[in-house]
Nucleic acid binder design. Structure first.
Lengths: 129, 129
DNA sequence: CAGCATCCAACCGGATACTG
DNA sequence: CAGTATCCGGTTGGATGCTG
């Protein structure tokens, strides 16, 4: 069973994904935008722990990577809103599974580190194997 | 729809997940370990772009977070191997979907940066192998 | 409202050299 | 083999002030 294809030192595509989605905020922002278009202040309110500075920067990067669209309405007061592109929406399943996993992980770690809870063995996510 | 729950400024669980899985390497390492137990040098070979220092640090963090088990064999030459815990294996589906997404994203971006693919949905996510 | 500018501290990640 | 020690640049993130 030594296929040794498994050990191929090729560039892992997970790395490619993490270069775009890496950092602490990208996926959290994506997740919020899955509900629909949101303006800057709505996102800021939805993510209280991110600073304005970081939110701006992360949104610009997501825009540059083609995951969100930024729309500026020239009115007073100013209004800018952000919408997921098709590419951004393609992360729907992954973002939701990460959300479920995060909740599950926090629960298991919060109660007792290392033991399996009475809950379903996994988050909503289906396990392989 | 004013007081909808969707906008709850609560701590997003995606953030919790990203605190554990964040950074460029965590998920890539996880992905490699999904194939089974690997020793340090095998991981290093499987991920040529990570430095030894980073590999060590990321592995220690994964261990501290209960995702991998570190086993030291007191022999000469030294041997240490790493195995996923149940918690670590619970990320199987997510890691594989991210891998698939990364491959798909690279492909679409490589061909035509900025244009939407005619394809209807997300990348073809391979559920379990 | 939605930002940009600036300063600054802390941490992340990489390169290199050395060790049990 | 599997690390540790040291140095160092870049990024993250916070605070504060200013602008169209």
């Amino acid at each position: 069973m030594r296929g040794d294809i498994e050990d191929t030192p090729e560039y892992c595509d997970v790395e490619a994904a993490m270069e775009v989605l890496g950092g602490r905020w990208k996926l959290a922002i994506l997740k919020k935008l899955l509900d629909g278009t949101k303006r800057f202040s709505e996102l800021k309110r939805a993510l209280p722990r991110i600073t304005q500075r970081m939110l701006t920067r992360q949104l610009r990067e997501l825009e540059a990577d083609g995951l969100v669209t930024r729309t500026v309405h020239r009115e007073v007061p100013p209004r800018v809103d952000y919408t997921l592109t098709e590419t951004g929406r393609s992360l729907d399943a992954i973002a939701n599974q990460l959300d479920a996993w995060g909740r599950w992980y926090r629960a298991t770690r919060g109660e007792q580190a290392g033991a399996e809870p009475a809950e379903p063995g996994s988050p909503q996510v289906e396990r392989s194997r």
